[in-house]
Amino acid sequence: MAALPGASAMELAAADGDPRGRSEEPPILATPNLIEGDEFRAIRVAPEREARLESGFTGFLDGAQEVRVVSHCDGIPIVWATVSAAVRVRQNRRLLAWQRHAPAVERRYYVPFRYLENARQSFRNDPRVVDTGRPDASGAIPSRHPAALLERAMQKVQQDREALEQTLADAWCGSESSALYIDGSITASMIASASSLAVGVIKSHRTLYAEGAAFRVVVGLTAGERSSVFRVSPRTRNPVASWYVRVRSASGRDALFGLVRVEAALTNDPTARSDEISRWIIAEGSPLALPDGRWDKMSYGIRDTEEFLRAIS
């Protein structure tokens, strides 16, 4: 790398550890802020087995990121990442690319210039390069520790991916009239979080809204059941209605098997809305998303979108 004197190329094998990795938060329990009824309980929305349900989703939105440490310069990791997002729409039971908005793919370097005094100016000014050494929203600056720098790069990559996803979600809400299945939270977008067309489905449960008695309810949900609706309002994001749905039976499996958390816009009738959306999500469990390891929670539409992104990015 001529732009970074002293940089040494990485062995490819060494960078193969987790090329698609994401920055993870520590697992925590949070108290659910109920907006449906007086107690947190399980509500059946579909039969436990052989549910033959309709789905109101016509679009599926997902994003992907691929991160590689391509070089080290004086011990500082130089990260190259590809972020992408796409919407796939269902027509005649087959999934196709959304014609109104092309899939988005962006590729960038993530470099902490604070610790790279020798970096050439042209490299610093390149729009494909993101400076990860700047203070974040809280004013924190990453230390020189390579792991901390890598963690900061991962956060930036994740933000870029979420930005792409948000753009597509907002575009959908502004142009379509049917529901969009979004892989992940919708709280980052003001438009999506307030739209009746956007539904976020979260598969990972690093934050479990099940503190206290709610815990037994959540882990005890059987297939076809949902929890009571509660309000999620992250500090820097937008508030939404949320609830848990057990898509598949967890009998003989771990407690979170087949469990997803749903986010939708706040509404005056959370019961009817959450019942309807829960049934849609259960319906999206067929066909199976295998061989993806998260097949118990993932809809086939999202798997298809991930495969699509893998092909184009």
């Binding site: 309709e54 039971r93 087959r94 999206e284 067929s286 066909p287 086939y300």
Partner: peptide, 11 residues
């Protein structure tokens, strides 16, 4: 028989 009720066809 359940296959016919899948709302999405596999790629």
């Amino acid at each position: 028989g359940n296959a016919g009720f899948s709302i999405t066809e596999r790629a």
